[in-house]
């Protein structure tokens, strides 16, 4: 579909590790099955399908049924990973996600592929930038947006072992490894990418490395920016947010709408508990035609754009 962007050295398409991890898990646990909507290729599940032909359930182009079928499979004792483009598994099947998965509390792993604006030129129907806002009120649905290959593998393993509904928001945008020493995957906890005390940059998914780049630029100007990888959006890491508020200024960064997602959650929490300037970097609404790279630059999802947002937040700092 959209361009396979040339992969820069050290950058990886995390779909590869998503599927190799799932295959390892499936080898060990026969209850793990994959459910797709004509999305075998776009979910990179071709090798899974070859290895476990009976455990790849392609329902055709029918997302509402797909999510409902996931709930039914969980009822029957399977551990379904339901995998489809983020825009369709959330938007098209939203009521199934709400009623059949979250409200009913089934042990289903929803996997939103090519989330954010990965489909670039295919336009707003194919962008999945509203998913955070749609899903965040489903309080018992764990929402995880891994930032790199290591975290993708950890999140898939954790989701398989965890009893309960999960939304994994994956991407095919190549990202570099975050290179954090002695990492431990702690769902529900923000991960410290870089310490700092003047401002906190809170990012998730494909934008964490960009926020780290922004912190480098800010350091050149004598500004010490903390960078958090906020990979779990539900439940919210309140402790990390109190600490972020204590730096006196916050920037949120997400490959999503600035309404109701990570920025919305942080603004909501800080306004209620510890008011502090919050600048939200993300997308304002339906986007014009354009490639992923163009959209990222145009809307300030870049080290420069994030650093500029940090300066705006610092300007507003009491």
């Amino acid at each position: 579909m959209a361009h396979a962007a040339p992969v820069a050295a050290g950058f990886q398409d995390c779909r590869n590790i998503w599927v190799s991890t799932l295959e390892q898990l499936a080898e060990a646990d026969p209850r793990i099955v994959a459910v797709v909507n004509d999305s075998v290729g776009s979910s990179k599940l071709n090798s899974f399908q070859k290895r476990f032909p009976d455990r790849l359930i392609n329902v055709g182009i029918a997302e509402q049924a797909m999510v409902g079928i996931g709930a039914g499979l969980a009822n029957g004792g399977q551990i379904p990973f339901v995998s489809a483009a983020g825009c369709f598994i959330t938007g098209r099947a939203l009521e199934q996600v709400k009623a059949d998965i979250a409200y009913a509390g089934f042990n289903v792993k929803l996997v939103g592929q090519s989330s954010g604006v990965a489909y670039g030129e295919l336009g707003a129907t194919h962008h999945s930038i509203e998913d955070f806002a749609w899903l965040r009120p489903l309080a018992n649905l764990t929402i995880i947006t891994p930032a790199d290959a290591w975290e993708t593998a950890e999140a898939v393993k954790w989701a398989a072992a965890h009893e309960g509904p999960v939304y994994l928001r994956l991407s095919r945008m190549p990202v570099p490894d975050l290179h954090i020493a002695d990492r431990q995957f702690r769902p529900g906890k923000a991960e410290l990418v870089r310490p700092g005390g003047d401002v906190t940059l809170i990012a998730c998914g494909t934008t964490v490395h960009l926020a780290a780049g922004a912190a480098g630029r800010l350091a050149d100007q004598g500004i010490s920016a903390r960078v958090l990888n906020f990979s779990t959006l539900n439940p919210l890491d309140e402790e990390a947010l109190y600490a972020a508020a204590a730096t006196g200024a916050i920037v949120t960064v997400e490959e999503a709408s600035i309404r109701g997602g990570l920025g919305g959650a942080v603004a909501e929490f800080t306004a209620a508990h510890r008011p502090v300037p919050v600048e939200r970097v993300g997308f304002p609404g339906f986007l014009p035609t354009g490639s992923v790279d163009w959209l990222f630059k145009e809307y300030g999802l870049s080290p420069e754009g994030i650093a500029a947002a940090a300066l705006r937040a610092l300007d507003r700092k009491a």
Partner: peptide, 13 residues
Amino acid sequence: YMQPRSLLNGHPN
């Protein structure tokens, strides 16, 4: 077709 800000988006608008 498909260029930045093109009216000819990947899907019709």
